[in-house]
């Protein structure tokens, strides 16, 4: 099994809108991440761009459509497409979500939450095993941003992820923004979540923006919208994580209302600064 091995540096989610700017000069970007499903056509400009990026940068392929958290079987055709993509680009890492997005053959195009029980745990483990066996590589599983909880859940999300990592050998993708969003939405302290999280399995971190609304009772409800700069409390949480974990591959995600390239690059530089400081402290 090929291990997930991104450089322990800051990266950004690649958007075609930034391609010309990225190519215009060498970038101090540790890696680029792309959504797998955008590169499943047979050819054309998407592959030409990704092939060009791949020549100079490390790559993370991030799936958003495999529906690993579904109680129904994985879509074998989709898994085969992921294998084709990974074989073609040989990314340093492949990751997916602890969520589901397909049901009864319909693709729901969102990362939907699942109850955490012995039953769902066994099913997710089965799916992660199947993905890793098919791809011949270690995958990373990402903690979700959630807006609701399930009455039937009996396992803490952090324990759920720890058990999956322990039994499958997969790594974890710790989305710090998702931690902040979910903790706020469930009136929990995000630092407690981080304290319980199996940090030893983390191979990548995600940072992103969120937006704010209110729930039915007037309480703050955060939405994982990826359409703003990383917010201050998320940066603070990230510093805590890096302080404990040391440098780890860290991605800035920005998927909607895209900024100009220099602004996105500045976000990555801010993450790199925190990584550099952690490395210096460790060396001292």
């Amino acid at each position: 099994m090929i291990p997930s091995a991104l450089p322990r540096r800051a990266g950004v989610g690649f958007k075609p809108e930034h391609f010309a700017d990225i190519l215009a000069e060498p970038q101090t970007i540790g890696f680029f991440e792309v959504h797998a499903e955008n590169y499943m056509g047979a050819g054309g400009p998407p592959h030409a761009q990704l092939g060009k990026l791949r020549e100079d940068y490390a790559l993370s392929i991030h799936g958003v459509g495999l529906s690993i958290g579904s109680m129904q079987p994985l879509d074998r055709d989709h898994l085969a497409r992921l294998k084709t993509l990974c074989d073609r680009y040989r990314p340093e890492s492949f990751s997916e979500h602890l969520a589901w997005s397909s049901h009864d053959g319909v693709f729901l195009n969102d990362l939907l939450p699942l109850p955490y029980t012995r039953e769902t745990l066994d099913r997710v483990i089965e799916h992660v095993d199947q993905v890793q066996a098919t791809l011949g590589r270690q995958m990373l599983l990402e903690n979700p941003a959630t807006y609701l909880l399930f009455a039937e859940s009996t396992i803490e999300e952090t324990d759920f992820l720890a058990e999956i990592a322990r039994r499958t050998g997969c790594g974890l993708l710790l989305d710090v923004n998702n931690v902040f969003v979910a903790a706020t939405n469930h009136n929990l302290d995000p630092r407690d979540y981080i304290a319980r999280f199996p940090l030893e399995a983390v191979r990548e971190i995600h940072l992103g923006g969120h937006s704010e609304t209110i729930d039915d009772h007037g309480a703050c409800l955060l939405i994982d919208s990826h359409d703003t700069p990383v917010k201050d409390p998320v940066w603070a949480l990230y510093e805590t994580v890096i302080g404990r974990l040391g440098p780890v591959a860290s991605l800035v995600e920005w998927d909607n209302d895209l900024p100009a390239w220099p602004m996105l690059r500045a976000e990555a530089e801010a993450a790199q600064h925190i990584l550099d400081r952690a490395a210096q402290q460790r060396a001292a």
Partner: peptide
């Protein structure tokens, strides 16, 4: 009815986040 939140039983807005996202 399987869904809950920390602060009450009205979940319309929370569930609507998923409806709207899709």
């Amino acid at each position: 009815s399987s869904l809950t939140a920390w602060n009450g039983t009205a979940l319309e807005r929370r569930y609507s986040v998923y409806r709207n996202n899709i």
